[in-house]
Write a protein that binds this DNA or RNA. Structure first.
Lengths: 220, 220
DNA sequence: CGTTTCCTTGACCTGAATCAAAAGGAGTGG
DNA sequence: CCACTCCTTTTGATTCAGGTCAAGGAAACG
């Protein structure tokens, strides 16, 4: 029985989320964490001026709401990119159950640690990579996660707009669009609206920043 | 009191870190988390090509090593920016003690949640702000944290080089240097090498991105 | 259908990177 | 204490990646 299945056992309550509906909003009390069962979500920060930064796109099996456990107030919005369904794990129940099943605590710890690692990697993407590298890394990341879910790593549908991708990657929607066109022109992928087909994952991987390693290896 | 004694036992071990020494390195097993007692640290990711991204600068009271709890392997380096001292909390001991003191678990949870929030905010800085906003936000953040420690929020010493600030903020060292010069020319601060004196925190705050809110408020 | 939202593409501009040079400090050894 | 090197920082000149502005076009939607 894997971790998610165990966490699943803790859950009776489910919520259906129509496209564009919010699972939680910034400022609301944190009562639960949520495991995405189907569909996809985005989470985003928003400051006083309305300026938004998307901090993650979630796929089935991934967790929303583990920020905000500090203050008991959500620090972000979680919004469905398509009709979705989540499992609710109330923190009260969690704590009660965790008293009997200590492993739950360490599983939550793992999930949080994973989120920290993910955020740090994203900081690297935003701080150190150029636009083409960012988009290539983004596509490969999606591809891998979908693959882990049993979907094709080569062909998938983007559930988010160009603008959302751009916001997430620290680029404008025009730049994202141009990069898609260029990648398509160069034969790396095919893209039609939100349907993507990755044609040359190896080159994308090189593009995404691993190429430095290859270069350095070549020198020796 | 028993509990306090236990807590004490948890952190009896201390480590002195000379400047530039490493507390832990990427790839090493995660045996403990570390609370900084004095001095300052940086943590940084490093990929196969040697490309580095600094993910945090730590001040006394802050925690290092809570990434890596997922895989039991550190995903970053932690390096002392000056002679420093840390308290060691071995995860074995922590888990044993937490069985008797459940509050420890929730405290760790808070710390991790805090780190997630911090990373997300930084993502916003890296993804959405322009260079001057990034540096202003960086200085104000340092100022606030130092202030919380009882130091002056106006006058402090940067323990990191221009290059390290630039890396952290996704800028080049030249850009950081130019911004310091410009801020000084505009009377926002004085800077001499690594000694900073903030002269106009309000304007810095406006610069750092809150100005949008002010503008919007002004419209209504 | 018409309307709206999203995407693409082009022209142009600008903020920050890059390249280059010099100057200031800090540490070292004579 | 000075002369030396090394490292960090500053500043200038130039370039360029990506942003901004603008206009069409294609899907999606009621």
């Amino acid at each position: 029985m894997n971790e998610l299945e165990q966490l699943d056992a803790l859950v009776q309550e489910r919520i259906r989320l129509p496209k564009n509906s919010t699972l939680f909003r910034l400022g609301e009390p944190t009562e639960a964490i949520y495991a995405l069962r189907s569909g996809s979500l985005k989470t985003q920060l928003e400051d006083a001026s309305g300026q938004v930064q998307i901090t993650s796109f979630l796929l089935p099996g991934e967790i929303a709401g583990i920020d905000g456990l500090q203050t008991d107030i959500h620090r972000s919005h979680a919004i469905a990119l398509e009709d979705s369904e989540v499992c609710v794990m109330r923190m009260d129940d969690f704590d009660r159950l965790a008293a009997e099943m200590p492993i739950l605590q360490s599983q939550l710890r793992r999930l949080m640690s994973q989120e920290i690692a993910r955020s740090h990697n994203l900081m690297k993407t935003l701080g150190a990579l150029r636009s083409e590298q960012r988009l290539a890394a983004f596509l490969l990341n999606l591809s891998e996660r979908l693959s882990a879910l049993g979907y094709s790593p080569y062909e998938f549908i983007l559930r988010m707009s160009r603008e959302e991708i751009g916001n997430f990657l620290g680029l404008t929607l025009e730049t994202v669009s141009r990069l898609f066109s260029r990648f398509a022109r160069e034969g790396l992928l095919k893209i039609q609206q939100r349907e993507v087909m990755l044609l040359d994952i190896e080159t994308l991987r090189i593009l995404s920043g691993v190429e430095c390693a290859a270069q350095q290896a070549a020198k020796h």
